[in-house]
Design a binder for these strands. Structure first.
Length: 430
DNA sequence: TCTGGGGTCCTAGGACCC
DNA sequence: TCTGGGGTCCTAGGACCC
């Protein structure tokens, strides 16, 4: 379906937290203000957030840490490992603040939300109030873009950031020369256009957002599917995407990590996979879901020394499950079939799919007896309650808790979990 | 025995997002 | 030496059925 949420005279506000992860770190460490700061991905692999000062030094998004390490130490850039406990909690606070301003709101990502604002008489004034309230309640600076479609609101938010005199708010509908704004946006920066499509478009002479707006519909449909066509219509002000204020049901759950160093010992691989399965299963239960299909995989990645090997196995489970030990049993049996001796693996993981609501599930004829099912459910409930009280990993399966493990990911620059852990509250005085 | 057309379901792969 | 992790959607093609 092309039009999922088209509405008459729609207006959308996109609220986007500025350099979100960096801003979170700055809230709890004022010495970071006005200094170049970067935050690294899991495993301290690459740069995923940069302060404006770090951007000015030429550190780009996704740069591997080892490639910019020299630049970083030369300029005294402060470096942080990803602290998702902190960022997730700060995100919840921002969203809670935003919710007071519009009943129709979509949490689009950890640092962005769309708000419907069709009823506002002066949306820019309203957005400025939103902005100052978020800053007051959370300490997080945001930019707000307003337009008649979500895709244009993304562009407006970008303009709000780029134009210093915009004061963090930009209303594309109220802008006299919106065509010029579109002309200033490279097609690769349009929402929905990634690297591959940007290259294809460039070869066809479509360079800016304005070019894409005027592109031939048939050509776009053929080369970029209906999603590309939606993007073009949205650029023309035809709203194809609505505010999805009810979160759609989760389709899959993935848990995987790269190892801190390569692993060839099958026992270590089993430990790691068992832990990722535990994580995925806990998420499954927290949403009251069951999984019917589980995919396990191992890989050496495409680079690095030694033989390369990537393999995945899709397992149809005998009945929908959410019990950690059951899932680990199936997963480890799968791993057994994938593993090759002498190969140094860099990553393993699990994906749970064919998810269904716990209540909707009908027990299969030859599955566990209902009493055994119920025992297992109550057992996992108890485990989850203990882990909620004492911290993740207080009770775990098949792996020893809190032991030092060589395959653990690297997180050498971690800040405190200031808002979610009593023992790591920020100190007013050392 | 050979053959066509059309429908559904599933999977793999490719594209995108943050 | 060293390049994240967790998601979604769309399409093409194969298997299977009538």
């Amino acid at each position: 379906m092309l039009f999922t949420g088209s509405e008459q005279s729609a207006r959308f506000a996109l609220v986007d937290c500025n350099n979100f992860y960096v801003s979170c770190e700055r809230v709890f460490d004022p010495s970071l203000a006005a200094r170049p700061v970067v935050v690294l991905s899991n495993n301290d692999g690459c740069v995923i957030a940069r302060s404006d000062e770090a951007k000015q030094l030429g550190i780009s998004m996704g740069t591997p840490f080892f490639k910019c390490r020299e630049l970083i130490s030369h300029h005294g850039v402060r470096v942080f490992s990803s602290n998702y406990a902190l960022y997730g909690d700060m995100s919840a606070r921002v969203m809670e603040t935003l919710r007071r301003f519009s009943p129709r709101m979509e949490e689009y990502s950890i640092d962005e939300a769309f708000l419907a604002c069709a009823q506002r008489e002066n949306p820019a004034d309203w957005a400025r109030r939103v902005r100052s309230q978020v800053a007051r309640c959370t300490g997080i600076p945001v930019s707000i873009g307003i337009a008649s479609t979500k895709t244009l609101a993304k562009i407006a938010a970008r303009a709000a950031k780029k134009q210093p005199d915009a004061g963090g708010v930009f209303d594309l509908d109220g802008c006299a020369d919106s065509e010029r704004v579109l002309e200033s946006v490279a097609v690769a920066d349009v929402w929905g256009v990634g690297r591959r499509y940007a290259e294809l478009l460039r070869r066809s002479g479509i360079i800016t957002a304005r070019d894409l707006k005027g592109a031939d519909e048939g050509w776009v449909r053929r080369h970029m599917t209906v999603q590309g066509l939606r993007t073009v219509l949205e650029l023309r002000g035809v709203s194809c995407l609505g505010v999805e204020d009810v979160a759609p049901a989760l389709r899959s759950i993935l848990s995987s990590r790269s190892f801190g160093s390569p692993v060839d010992d099958p026992a270590r691989l089993r430990e790691a996979l068992a832990e990722y399965i535990s994580t995925a299963a806990a998420k499954l239960r927290s949403r009251s879901l069951l999984t019917a299909v589980m995919q396990v995989f191992i890989t050496t990645g495409a680079h690095g020394p030694g033989p390369h090997h990537s393999a995945a196995l899709t397992l149809s489970l005998p009945q929908p499950l959410s019990s950690t030990p059951e899932l680990i049993r199936h997963g480890l049996a799968g791993l057994e079939r994938l593993y090759r001796r002498g190969v140094r693996y860099r990553k393993t993981g699990v994906m749970l799919t064919a998810l269904q609501k716990e209540r909707a599930h009908q027990p299969v004829l030859f599955g566990c007896a209902p009493a055994a099912d119920e025992r297992s459910r109550r057992f996992m409930e108890a485990v989850d309650a203990i882990n909620a009280r004492w911290g993740r990993g207080a009770v775990s399966f098949a792996v020893p808790s809190r032991a030092a493990r060589a395959w653990r990911m690297q997180r050498r620059f971690m800040s405190g979990r200031y808002t979610t852990c009593w023992s790591e509250l920020p100190k007013a005085r050392a």
